[in-house]
Design a protein around this nucleic acid. Structure first.
Length: 178
DNA sequence: CCCTGATTCGC
DNA sequence: GCGAATCAGG
């Protein structure tokens, strides 16, 4: 038996729901399983569901704003303890605006001191993770706001450059320069 | 390159 | 009706 059932009522319902919630075709395909994003899009059209206003365009995701970073040069007394970011995500007709306060620890000081600044998390849900998105967990996995960093991770590394440093901390400061 | 949806067309 | 291939765009 093969459960490669076609579009059952149930699946169509879920498709409608997810599509109306603003999820992308690939996301929906991932959730339904067993179908490609093309299949989802094709079905959406056949159902005459309202498409996204503009084609191809990040209709519901990818807010990529430039963070106003401080000067490249590093003043001695600079201690960003908390960073408050306002992330806006549009999901179909629903616009979500959430403020995210990120507690920055001593790690950041170290990193910032290294002139590497990337501590802005995108907070992407599990479904949106790809091979190139940082999989550093944010928040409590049991809570509803649990997500992952989601920043671009170079290479095929599981973490972005920032979280790589946190994940793979040197077991000890062997290197004693000067 | 990554991603998005839109369309076509053989099945 | 279905969806891979293709197209078109950010």
């Amino acid at each position: 038996m093969d459960n490669t059932q076609n579009w059952t009522e149930d699946r169509v319902e879920r498709l409608k729901k997810l599509w109306s919630e603003g999820l992308s075709a690939s996301q929906i395909a991932a959730q339904l399983g067993g179908v490609s994003r093309n299949a989802v899009i094709g079905k959406v059209h056949r159902l005459s569901l309202p498409g996204r206003a503009k084609a191809g365009g990040t209709t519901s995701a990818r807010p990529q704003k430039r963070a106003s970073v401080s000067q490249p040069s590093r003043p001695a007394t600079f201690t960003p303890r908390t960073v408050t970011r306002t992330v806006t995500r549009s999901a179909g007709a629903t616009m979500l605006k959430e403020e995210v306060e990120v507690e920055v620890h001593e790690h950041l000081e170290m990193v910032v001191d290294n002139n590497v600044v990337v501590p802005i998390f995108k907070r992407v849900p599990l479904i949106r993770l790809t091979e190139r998105t940082c999989k550093w967990p944010l928040g409590d996995p049991l809570k509803d706001d649990f997500a992952f960093c989601g920043n671009d991770s170079p290479d095929s590394s599981p973490y972005c450059t920032y979280h790589q440093k946190l994940a793979y901390q040197p077991s000890a400061e062997r290197r004693r320069l000067r």
